[in-house]
Design a protein around this nucleic acid. Structure first.
Length: 851
RNA sequence: GCCGGAAUGGCGGAACUGGUAGACGCAGCGGACUCAAAAUCCGCCGAUCGCAAGGUCAUGAGAGUUCGAUUCUCUCUUCCGGCACCA
């Protein structure tokens, strides 16, 4: 055995072994329990970043662990290959998105291979390939025929200079990112998927996902947002015609306190009023300026303007003014609300601002009055007052009675309302999956027949930022109607890339299948047993995937499978420090790898300079790795300097998977040092003369660590598993004793370490003669006999404060323990002269004397 | 603004079901080896009082429950993620 650890050589050799043995190839095997372990696939942005390394290392640790525990483990990999960055790169470099994407895939695939992940590459897929997106299109036509996909108008960000639709990301402070023009809202026809059809099921099924973090389930629950309330009609007259203005409210009990109505700027009443009233028109136009982002909308100043119209209160007959309000969302409920200033904070602010009456109708904890300023108690449930027939009723009774009374007048009924909206999938962009629809003047929107699928996306175009190039390309859009054969126009919008990623996990099960979207192999592998990815996907991607799985189930593609992911692990983000210099007048970001930092004894930064030229740099704090701040750490450099095992070990050791990980080059050196000392220890072991002795002390320590490590691995706290490896090595290394316990300990250490640092473990396992392939060795379990102890140490507290410790026989009874505790000299100092009122004994842990 | 998280030494983090706060590692300091440096090895390492034994304080802030709270409850602060066209 070589004396020095050469990670590059060890890794090359191990990877060649796995390649030769096809170690990661998997097939369906009904005889063994299956385990489908999946990490979210990457967007091929250029090269791997540390977030990828972390994500795939976590997945690989679980994959190798379950493999050693005898499961048939599938871990595939692919590419989320459509999307906006490819178009941006295309514009910047005048290269087609396809070429840029395929080049990136090739580079990143080589990087993934160099990290030694146990991936079955024979299942690789890329969403931009026709053999994949064909099935997006196929399923879309099925959903379209069922009415689960349909067309209606939707609102988009419009850049009036480039004459193009912008993504939210491309709108910066209300302006287009390339043109700087003020962005406007525009309504255009789009295709929607009817996710609301499954709203009830998507909500209820969250209770049957014990393997998901509570936090994610709660976010999804709130996002779906079921609320039970009452739909209420307020009659009004328009153009000598009787009409009804409908609102939805969860607070029908406050109906008698309604003093005004407010409608969204897009509401038909607003449009009608705008035609007659210039003030309303100006306000509606003002509302149309700006972007569509909810976060922005929610923070703008609440404003409104009266339409001049009045609606009739359905119970009191009072005339209520109808306003247009910029805080009313057209997309939620009816696009109109009742204004109850006394019991709703937003309505209160609105009424205060415009001098509208405030009429308290609920007795709240502070009494019956509503006086400025607003207090949260005003919005709480209470009994009705000033409400005529409803006085004295509590919330539920009031709602029931009011709904019943409204029902008799045909002006209301109880209703369930969802916050969840249908999913608009149309994108006016080139680099995506074409929507398989042909627009025919005679036949309308006709889905492309199966035989003509896929609708192929031409791969040679270069977008120029002024709209979708497909719409300027007759060879693409000029076609004939599949139904009547007359000339027709092909849809040029493409699908939201979230569609691509909503079912890829099932497609991995069916490599090579070109006759169907999925086949019976998907039934063997689905659902994914462990899904791993960033917390930033907690809502959209995961919800869309849950929806798609149900849509596929109902198409007969996945019988009996409703949930795609049985267990979910949401990893934290990888952060790094950022530094800049403003020597040149504007901020120039310096990569932390090029910064020399000087710290004081407390570790605070005293000064920092660029290593290349000594220019002083300033510290900007810690944040997500990004191109704009030039603080990305390139995993490639790390792999080249230390090897893949160190990169993997560090990302696992640095923090638990769910935490954010703050990058530090110095800590990497510590991980490298540990792997080096494992090698050094193995080398000395290989040379040593071994006895057959067992030493109980060390064996106890090793098996205690192992027991804890096995618990930690099950709860996915991998950083302490890495610590356990260090602790075991420390225990082995403490004495120069080469016996049977050393050998056992080393074999435990290598197996425990192998999911994290597989190359080194693989090499040493063979080198030391433990076996042919460590992946085929059984996972180590703690030996209960090794954990037995005759004596235990108990901590002694007086009034909850630590005052000493005692050693007692394992079987000692309460009285004996109490006696020993009181005999302790330091304990005596604090007990002397006082009454012991109570003695708490926690077996195996502590004694607390209360005086 | 709304929804969901997080906060422990100079730093990353540990602490099992409410039971010894700071495991393991990094950085730092002192020493050994060396002509010297690197590497390696040994020791120290929350604050504070004390010659020492030991004491006191301390888990973002403030309250509460408990024999005992980093852990449970309430209020607040700061930071992070998401908000439907970034992926």
């Amino acid at each position: 055995m070589q004396e020095l650890y050469d990670p590059q050589a060890v890794e090359r050799e191990a990877q060649a072994y796995w390649e030769r043995a096809r170690s990661f190839h998997v097939e369906e095997d009904p005889a063994r329990p299956k385990f489908y372990c999946l990490s979210m696939f990457p967007y091929p942005s250029g090269k791997l970043h540390m977030g990828h390394v972390r994500n795939y290392t976590i997945g690989d640790v679980l994959t190798r662990y379950h493999r050693m525990r005898g499961r048939n483990v599938l871990q595939p990999m692919g590419w989320d290959a459509f999307g906006l960055p490819a178009e941006n790169a295309a514009m910047a470099n005048k290269v087609p998105p396809a070429k840029w994407t395929y080049d990136n895939i090739a580079y990143m695939k080589a990087q993934l291979k160099s990290l030694g992940f146990a991936l079955d590459w024979e299942r690789e897929l890329a969403t931009c390939r026709p053999d994949y997106y064909k099935w997006n299109q196929w399923l879309f036509t099925r959903l379209f025929r069922k009415g689960l996909a349909y067309k209606k108008t939707g609102v988009v960000n419009w850049d009036p200079v480039d004459q193009t639709v912008l993504a939210n990301e491309q709108v910066i402070e209300g302006r287009g990112w390339r043109t700087g023009a003020l962005v406007e809202k525009r309504e255009i026809p789009m295709y929607f998927l009817r996710i609301t059809h499954y709203a009830e099921e998507l909500l209820a099924a969250l209770d049957d996902l014990p393997g998901w973090p509570e936090q994610v389930k709660l976010m999804q629950k709130n996002w779906i947002g079921k609320s039970e309330g009452v739909r209420i009609g307020f009659p009004y007259r328009l153009d000598d015609e009787d009409r009804v203005l409908w609102v939805f409210t969860t607070r029908a009990d406050t109906l008698m306190g309604a003093t005004f109505m407010a409608v969204a700027a897009e509401h038909p009443i607003a449009s009608f009023a705008a035609e007659r009233n210039p003030e309303v028109k100006a306000f509606v136009e003002e509302c149309k300026r700006g972007a569509v982002m909810e976060a922005e909308l929610a923070q703008i100043e609440k404003k409104g303007v009266p339409t001049g119209l009045y609606a009739t209160h359905p119970l009191s007959g009072e005339k209520l003014p109808v306003w247009v309000g910029n805080y009313v969302l057209m997309g939620y409920g009816e696009g109109a609300v009742q204004g109850v200033p006394a019991h709703d904070e937003r309505d209160y602010a609105f009424a205060q601002k415009y001098g509208l009456p405030i009429k308290p109708v609920i007795r709240h904890r502070l009494g019956e009055r509503v006086d400025p300023p607003w207090k949260p108690e005003y919005a709480e449930y209470g009994t009705c007052i000033n409400s005529g027939a409803y006085d004295g009723l509590a919330y539920q009774e009031a709602v029931d009675r009011i709904a019943a009374d409204l029902g008799r007048k045909n002006l209301g009924e109880k209703q369930v309302q969802w916050r969840l909206r249908d999913w608009g999938i149309s994108r006016q962009r080139y680099w995506g999956c074409p929507i398989p629809i042909v627009h025919c003047e005679a036949c309308g929107d006709v889905p492309v027949p199966d035989a003509e699928l896929p609708v192929k996306l031409p791969e040679h175009l270069v977008p120029d930022g002024t709209g979708n190039p497909l719409a300027k390309m007759p060879e693409f859009y000029a076609t004939r109607c599949p139904s009547c054969g007359k000339p027709a126009r092909r849809e040029t919008d493409t699908m939201d890339t979230f569609v691509d990623s909503s079912w890829y996990f099932a497609r991995y099960a069916c490599p090579g299948q070109d006759k169907a979207m999925l086949d019976e192999r998907a039934r063997y592998w689905m659902a994914v047993d462990q899904y791993i990815g960033g917390i930033e996907h907690a809502i959209l991607h995961l919800l869309y995937s849950r929806f798609f799985t149900r849509a596929m189930r109902d198409e007969g593609l996945l019988p009996g499978v409703s949930e795609p992911f049985t267990n979910l692990l949401t990893q934290g983000m990888v952060l790094a420090e950022s530094y800049y210099t403003d020597a040149s007048g504007r901020r120039e970001w310096v990569n932390p790898g090029d910064v020399l930092v000087e710290r004081d004894a407390k570790g605070n930064i005293v000064s920092a300079k660029r290593s290349s030229d000594g220019v002083p740099v300033l510290y900007d704090g810690i944040g997500t790795m990004s191109k704009s701040k030039n603080n990305g750490v390139d995993p490639q450099a790390l792999i080249e300097q230390y090897g893949a095992d160190t990169a993997r070990f560090y990302t696992i050791f640095a923090s638990p998977p769910t935490n954010t990980l703050e990058w530090s080059d110095k800590n990497v050196a510590g991980s490298a040092r540990f792997l080096k000392s494992v090698w050094a220890f193995a080398y000395r072991f290989s040379k040593a003369l071994k006895s057959r002795d067992i030493d109980r002390q060390r064996r106890f320590r090793i098996h205690s660590e192992l027991k804890q490590a096995n618990y930690d691995i099950q709860r996915h706290q991998f950083n302490t598993v890495a610590s356990a490896c260090m602790k075991i090595l420390n225990a082995l290394d403490e004495v120069e004793e080469w016996n049977a316990t050393t050998e056992e300990g080393l074999s435990i250490l290598l197996r425990l370490l192998s999911p994290i640092a597989p190359h080194l473990s693989h090499h040493l396992w063979r080198e030391l003669g433990f076996g042919e392939d460590i992946m085929k060795a059984p996972w180590p379990e703690a030996d209960p006999a090794a954990l037995e102890q005759d004596e235990v140490e108990l901590v002694v507290q007086v009034n909850g404060k630590l005052r000493g410790s005692i050693r007692v026989p394992k079987a000692a009874d309460r009285a004996a323990i109490e006696g020993l505790a009181l005999a302790n000299a330091n304990v005596q100092r604090f007990v002397a002269g006082q009454n012991v009122k109570k003695v708490v004994v926690v077996p195996g842990r502590l004694v607390n004397l209360v005086v």
